[in-house]
Design a protein around this nucleic acid. Structure first.
Lengths: 197, 197
DNA sequence: AAAAAAACTTACTAATTAGTAAGTAAGTAG
DNA sequence: CTACTTACTTACTAATTAGTAAGTTTTTTT
């Protein structure tokens, strides 16, 4: 048995606490459903303190998406992810979505922003496109290798299948929010059934 | 060659024009992205005129979802849909989503409301659940008959496959909004490739 | 210890929001 | 013709929104 490493809980600075809270609200209630007042009250600071760190809501939104993109790249390049065989990489991806589900049934970033996309500031739109593109390219590569090595099974191009799988996962989180966790499990089960040989 | 029947364009009353416009904005920009002022300006009436027909925004939102549910039931029970073989019913469903795509890349009702679900009034939440449930049940039945008659191919339960296919279509419209129409076509192509024998 | 930079608070704008109350004009029914 | 209903407009309120400017406290640097 291994003992969990003791990670000292560094009290996050206000800048990070704002970003964490805003991200949570974005993924739980949508981008237009929280204000600087909400954030300020929850954090015990004044709204102007938030403007100090993130001058406009556009800046704050951009910061959320940019951080998610940095996290994606970091996660994808982690040895314990990058060096995994394709099936395990796919399972690692599913685990991420499962974490969202367990975290107040948060939807994924894409699922949270797609509907309101046209109301978002242009830099945020561009960053979200990049996020989605890089994630899809990563999964396409995973699928391609998996099929080549006989551990994953699907018809069509890896790119098409990757796009389909990712929006299915994004959608599964949305359905979980509207109904309950059951349809998420059902849909993920269906994905496994089809992909895993 | 058949001549298209001449449908007289009855000028819609204000009540309907409000609902049409609000529905369009909901599907194009999200529920929190339009106000009574926007609607009023666009329609050339005063905001209070909208409150007259739909006292609160909750009422307006509810009216949109309720109408979509009525439309779904009507469409589903139409002889030219209900009497079709399963493959043609599936294609008819795809055609609906394709229409959304061609109409300013509107997302579907579910895709428009899922992210903000928790901010919606309770009656609207309930109505959206019913909408999604009835659509899924309909497609599950279509898929079941299609597989039984050897015209549709899939593994797993019809209910699971129906849930998966529907959120894939909802998601495909969302991706089309974020990128362009190409990923929608790619994903729908993938669905056809997998389902049609 | 002094200076400077960072991290705020206080106090305010201007715009927008949903919503209401009272009045009016036009159509409909008796 | 009259009474009533429908469909609005005008004029308002109270709350909330993002955002700013100026001042103050706290922390860091020198």
């Amino acid at each position: 048995m291994t003992t969990a490493p003791v990670i000292p809980t560094i009290p996050a600075d206000t800048r990070t606490r704002i970003l964490d809270l805003a991200e949570g609200l974005l993924l739980e209630r949508g981008f237009n459903a929280f204000s600087y007042q909400h954030l300020a009250k929850e954090l015990g600071v004044k709204p102007a303190a938030i403007h100090y760190h993130y001058p406009s809501k556009d800046d704050l939104g951009m910061a959320i998406v940019a951080r998610q993109l940095r996290r994606l790249r970091k996660w994808r390049d982690l040895p314990r992810v990058a060096d995994l065989p394709p099936v395990a990489q796919f399972e690692a991806l599913l685990a991420v979505y499962d974490t969202h589900l367990g975290h107040e049934r948060r939807v994924c970033l894409f699922g949270a922003l797609a509907a309101d996309f046209r109301t978002l500031p242009a830099p945020m739109q561009a960053e979200l496109r990049t996020f989605n593109r890089e994630l899809t390219e990563w999964l396409a590569q995973v699928l391609a290798v998996g099929r080549a090595t006989g551990t994953l099974r699907f018809v069509g191009s890896p790119a098409a299948k990757a796009a389909q799988v990712l929006i299915t996962l994004a959608g599964a989180l949305q359905v979980a929010r509207v109904h309950d966790e059951t349809p998420f499990q059902v849909i993920v089960g269906q994905l496994r059934l089809e992909l895993l040989t």
